[in-house]
Every structure is written in C-alpha cells, then in structure tokens.
C-alpha cells in the first residue's frame, strides 16, 4: 500500500514508464543487467577522471599540471550522464523501491552536496589553480573542495550499494508524506 504522497506519484511514474517503453526495456532479458553495467561504468569513469583530478588537487599526487589534467573532466561528465540516465531508468521501473528507500534518499542528498561543492569550487577556488605549476601544492581552499568532492562521491557509491538492504516496505522513509 503506497502512502499519500503530495510530491511523487509512484503509480503515475510507473504508468508513464510503461507507456514510453522503459518498463519493457528494463524487464527484457538483459535490460536491467545492461543498465547496471552502464551505471557502474559511468561510476568508474567519474572516479577515474574527477576522482583522480581531486587526488591531484588534494596534493596526494604531484607532477601533473592541474589545468592540463582538467581535460579529463569531460569524461567524468560523460560518466555522470551514463550513471544518471541509467539511474533514472531504475527509478522509473520500480519507483516505490527508490523514492521511499533511506539509502537512495541519502544517496540523492550526497549527490546534491557533490553538485553544490562543484558549483562553489568553480565559482571560487578554481580560478587560482590556472597559474599553478605541475609540482605546486594547491591552496588550502582547493584542497578542501577536492577532499569534499572525493568523500561525497565515495559516499554516493556507498549509499548506492546499500539500496537493496533498505528496501521498502520493510524500511520506509517519507518525511514529506502526509
């Protein structure tokens, strides 16, 4: 039995998924498996590019020009798009299992913080990095942004991995429900 939810219409989302063919695609023989492979490939791309950039910006790896290394970041964006779009397919295919899931809500919260951290970084500390040489230690603010970024992305992964442990209705979070 689904709750009175003033924001999300889980049944409506699922009906939409059925109408546009997402449901059939995901529940085809290899649909869910392929979506999971793409989801995790995106995650590896993100850690392999943004995560490695973060490690350099934290000062744990030296000898690489941050401005030049930033060319890896578009591949991280590609990874994020792969993960986010397949994540969307998962949610549309079985919305109640995600919307009211404590782990998924935590994951979305951490994702939002990672996004906010990125926006603040590009608005503030990123400008001062362009003049740094390959062996220079970035300023403290940049190191903190990088540490926060990596920690938040690892948090996103961890929360994602435990989604199946907190499945509704055994676990049920809905702070916005009546």
């Amino acid at each position: 039995m689904l709750p009175e939810d003033p924001i999300f219409d889980a049944v409506g989302i699922m009906v939409w998924g059925l109408d546009v063919g997402i449901y059939d695609l995901m529940y085809s023989a290899w649909g869910w498996t392929i979506a999971e492979i793409v989801h995790f490939t995106g995650l590896c791309l993100l850690i392999g590019t943004v995560g490695m950039y973060d490690l350099r910006m934290m000062g744990l790896v030296r000898g690489l020009s941050l401005a030049a290394l930033h060319r890896l970041v578009p591949f991280g964006v590609l990874g994020f798009v792969l993960s986010a779009s397949t994540g969307f397919l998962f949610v549309v295919s079985t919305p109640d299992q995600y919307l009211y899931n404590p782990a998924w809500q935590t994951k979305m919260g951490l994702l939002a913080l990672a996004g906010l951290n990125m926006v603040l970084f590009y608005l503030t500390a990123s400008r001062r990095l362009k003049v740094l040489g390959p062996d220079d230690m970035p300023p403290l603010a940049a190191r903190l942004f990088a540490g926060a970024s990596l920690t938040l992305w690892l948090g996103v992964i961890a929360a994602g991995r435990v989604i199946t442990a907190f499945r509704p209705p055994a676990w049920f979070w809905c702070a916005w429900c009546a």
């Binding site: 995650l43 590896c44 392999g48 995560g51 490695m52 591949f75």
Partner: peptide, 9 residues
C-alpha cells in the same frame, strides 16, 4: 572504482 578508475585515467 579506484582500480578501474586509475586504469581508465
């Protein structure tokens, strides 16, 4: 993620 990510980089 660290193993494959580093390898991808």
């Amino acid at each position: 993620a660290f193993l494959v990510g580093g390898g991808i980089a």
